[in-house]
Every structure is written in C-alpha cells, then in structure tokens.
Amino acid sequence: MTGVPASAAGGSSGAHGAAAGAASGAVAGTAGRAAPGASHSHGEQSATTGAAGRTGPADAADAATGGQAAVKPARGGKLAAAAVNQASVWNVANLLTMLRLVLVPGFVVLMLAGGGYDPAWRSLAWAAFAIAMITDLFDGHLARRYDLVTDFGKIADPIADKAIMGAALICLSALGDLPWWVTAVILGRELGITLLRFLVIRYGVIPASRGGKLKTLTQGVAVGMYVLVLTGWLATVRFWVMAVAVVLTVVTGLDYVKQAIVLRRRGIAGSGKALEESEG
C-alpha cells in the first residue's frame, strides 16, 4: 500500500482549502464590485426570512412583495373609482333643470288663466318665468364648478331653456301682446343654432360667446316685461328692450353660423392632412 504521510496529506488539504477560499473570496469580491446592491438585497431577504419566522408564511409573502401590496388596487378598483367619480343624475344642478321643465306647463296655465289678461294671474306667471330664468343661470354654473355634469343634464338643460322661452313667446303672440314675427325670429334662431351645433360637433364645439350670453339675458328681461301687464312708459321701455333682444338674436346667430363654417373647414382640412400623412 502506498502510504502518504499524514503531515503531507494535511498540508495538501490545507493548500487546497486555501486555494478554494481564495477563489471564493475573489468571486465574492467580483460580485460585490459588479452589484453594489447585493448586500442590501441579501439584507432584505434576511429581513423577509426573519419576518416569515415571526409572522408566518402569509405575512412573509406580503413582506416579500414590499410596498406593492399596499399600492396595488383591489380587483375592480378602477370601475369602483369611475362609479364614484361619475356624478349622480339626482344632483342639485339636474334638479334645477327638472324644476324648469315642471314650471313650463305651470307657466302656460297661469299665463292663460282668467282669459290671459288678468294682472294677478300674469304676475304669478311672471314669477314662474323668473324662477325658471334664475335657475337657468345657476344650474350650469353649479354643474361645472362642482363637477356635476351628466349626460342627462347636457340634453335636458337646453331643452328646458328653449321650452320655457318658447312657451312664453307663443303665449304672448297668441294673446296678441307680441307680433308673431318676433316669436318666429327668436325661436327660429334658437332651434337653428342648436341644430347647427349638432351638425358640426364632429369637428369641435362652438363656445358660447359674450354676445350670446347678453342675448339670453336681454331676451329674458324683455319677455318677462311682456308677461307683466305694463302700461305707460314701462310699456315703451319693454318695447325697446325687446327690440335690442331681437337685434342681438340675429347678430349672434349670424356669428355662430360664421364660427360653424370656419370650424367645419378647419376640421375637413385637418382630416385631409392627416389622411395624406397616413398614406405617405
């Protein structure tokens, strides 16, 4: 049997152990230089292991995921957030719009009560008309300010506006207090511009101008003065206020038509340019 001295064997093993230790140290040093965060990751893993030992596997899994578990939304979280953010139909702005719609038939009844010329009934009709016009000023402001805009409000609000104004004008003309051509000009303009907005909505939205807002205010004041039974100089004043309202109605209507034409031309030009770029 070939014998190897114990001292030689020990020396050889020691040499091999030293070589292995040096190699391991070199690899560890290289890894440490290549990935400075390795010790930090190892520390986190140790902390996670410790957490697992203290709190159990489930808590360890939560700890292993870091802050993601706290940040990650629950299943269906986006849908729930959308449902919360969407304004309810029964908000204060829509309720004011509904009130205007309810006031329309009430206004007509009061306007025609007592033959249509009773000052007391006409005063009550004026009160209903005034409430409708005041709510018209507030519901849109509230909807925009407090994010209460809904699809119902977008449709019902312009309908309520045109309904109360149209009912007042038709009743006044039917009673002979206002010429039919005035009613035709105002209602024709309102319905025409509304239709025009829908026709060009694919190209953009025609914003309400200052002239349009002034027109609405002047119309409301003029019609309200005609609803009341006025005589003397007040009757003369209401005539001129209505004249101003008619002029503003025509002028702003033409301005909206001009804006719609420009908006449509820009939209068509932009679509053609985009098509050329996509083909090119």
Rank of each mutant, 00 (worst) to 15 (best):
L254G: 06
P73C: 01
G166A: 10
A269D: 11
S41Y: 14
G21F: 09
G11V: 06
F152K: 02
S41E: 15
Q259Y: 01
V221G: 01
T218V: 04
A208S: 12
A93H: 04
V246D: 01
R33P: 03
A61Q: 14
A22S: 13
A235Q: 13
T218W: 00
G76E: 01
E44N: 13
A47S: 11
A28K: 10
P207H: 06
V241P: 04
R100M: 13
R145F: 00
V227W: 00
A245V: 00
L169Y: 04
R202N: 11
A128N: 08
W180M: 04
G43F: 05
A243F: 10
M225T: 04
A260Y: 06
Q68I: 14
I201C: 06
G25L: 08
P158L: 02
K215I: 03
R122H: 02
I164N: 05
V237I: 09
T65H: 11
V185P: 03
A35K: 08
L178V: 08
V244A: 10
W181M: 05
K78I: 14
G280Q: 09
V84R: 13
I131L: 13
R238A: 00
D151P: 07
V102P: 07
I268D: 10
A132I: 01
A168S: 08
I193Y: 02
G166Y: 09
L79V: 10
G114P: 05
M242Q: 03
V205G: 01
G14T: 12
I155S: 03
A70S: 12
K72V: 10
R266W: 05
L96T: 04
L248Q: 04
A23L: 15
G17Y: 05
H16D: 14
S39E: 15
A127S: 07
A222N: 01
L248D: 00
A93T: 05
K273L: 11
V241F: 02
D139W: 00
G280D: 05
G153R: 07
I131D: 02
A6K: 14
G114N: 09
K215D: 03
V250K: 00
F129P: 06
A87C: 02
T135Q: 01
R145W: 01
A125S: 07
S13Q: 10
L214P: 10
A31E: 05
R266Q: 11
G153T: 06
L137G: 15
D151C: 04
G270R: 08
R238M: 00
G11N: 12
A245C: 02
M165F: 07
V251D: 02
A125Y: 07
G37V: 10
F138L: 13
Y117R: 13
T49D: 15
I170V: 15
I164R: 07
C171M: 12
L137C: 12
T97C: 03
D139Y: 00
V257K: 03
L263K: 06
S271K: 14
R33N: 11
A19S: 10
G37T: 08
G270T: 06
L234S: 07
M165E: 09
D151G: 07
Y226F: 12
V262K: 14
A70M: 12
F239L: 09
A274H: 09
G14E: 13
M165R: 11
W121I: 08
G192N: 02
R100D: 08
T218G: 01
A23E: 15
G14V: 08
N85D: 05
D177V: 14
